[in-house]
């Protein structure tokens, strides 16, 4: 096991940030911690990177205990904390050189590891890091975390606030890194990114809801979900919520995800209800649950 977390709990003053968290990450796995802000992701990361003590429980990273052998962990992991935390007034090149030096290596030594990523920001290598766009900052931070060839990579919300294009590129990079044998623990609030991980843990308010592969997790969804559409989204939502048999009504882009309390539900019944309420252009199609649907169901 590359990362092993056993019954970790942590409180800050009276607030319980995480409660009895356990999970394991295999070597070379791309593991996602999926959950919104305040779920406890950053706290878990800080405990694993030895920056915080847990109140209860134990944890191991690359075979080292987070408390007793913290120095070994600090020498061997790559860490990308939540906010952009590189030196804004140093250039791209200077930042990279600094991190290489303090880890006792050079840019050249492990260049092949960061090559694919660095090429994208190389044209800007003399630019101050503070002047880079969000997507480029993330790439630079990733390079700096990788430059010493860590066995385990901790990425805390690396794509938050970054546009979808850069996010997609970033995950493509992660997939390629994974092939080189690096264990990667990533956290993200974006449910669509969860699908790209080998396994994920859904977290909400300090508790783990479920751990499994993305596919298996969606199979956990207990009900059938229907995509519903009509001529007025707002009125549709209200109307469905007033419908006595509804179990859940959630807007999902151009459709509303609707689930019914009854097991013997048929779409015609619903259609009639909507027609009665003066809706037109009605569409009701069964759809497969997404991770987001599952998350919301588990979080209730």
């Amino acid at each position: 096991m590359s990362i092993s977390v056993q019954h970790i709990s942590k409180s800050f003053k009276e607030v319980k940030a995480i409660n009895n968290i356990s999970f394991e990450v295999k070597e070379g796995e791309l593991f996602g911690l999926i959950g919104p802000d305040g779920a406890g992701k950053t706290t878990i990361f800080r405990i694993l990177t030895t920056l915080l003590f847990s109140d209860k429980g134990t944890a191991n990273v690359a075979g080292f205990d987070v408390i007793d052998n913290y120095k070994d962990i600090r020498n061997h992991v790559g860490y990308m904390p939540g906010r952009f935390s590189l030196y804004q007034d140093l250039t791209v090149e200077e930042n990279l050189e600094f991190f290489a030096t303090i880890f006792g290596t050079t840019i050249k030594e492990n260049y092949d590891l960061i090559k694919d990523i660095y090429i994208q920001i190389e044209p800007f290598k003399t630019r101050r890091a503070g002047k880079l766009s969000g997507g480029m900052k993330q790439k630079l931070a990733l390079c700096c975390a990788l430059i010493h060839k860590p066995k385990v990579l901790f990425l805390d919300e690396p794509t938050t606030g970054v546009d979808p294009v850069s996010r997609k590129e970033f995950w493509e990079i992660l997939k390629r890194l994974q092939k080189k044998g690096i264990t990667i623990l990533v956290s993200t609030p974006y449910m669509d990114e969860a699908a790209l991980c080998d396994r994920i843990a859904l977290i909400q308010e300090g508790e783990i809801l479920e751990i499994d592969t993305p596919k298996e997790i969606t199979k956990h969804y207990p009900k059938a979900i229907y995509n519903v559409k009509a001529n007025n989204m707002y009125k549709l939502i209200n109307s469905l919520k007033k419908y006595e048999h509804h179990y859940s009504v959630y807007p999902f882009g151009e459709y509303v995800h609707y689930t019914d309390k009854r097991t013997n539900f048929s779409t015609d019944i619903l259609k009639n209800y909507l027609v009665e309420n003066q809706f037109s252009d009605i569409e009701i199609i069964k759809t497969t649950p997404s991770i987001e649907d599952t998350f919301m169901e588990l979080a209730k």
Binding site: G35, P36, Q204, Y250, P251, E292, M296, A299
Partner: peptide, 12 residues
Amino acid sequence: GVDPITRRQFWE
């Protein structure tokens, strides 16, 4: 960064 349920409540 908001959780999916609250996001939707917000949009409502």
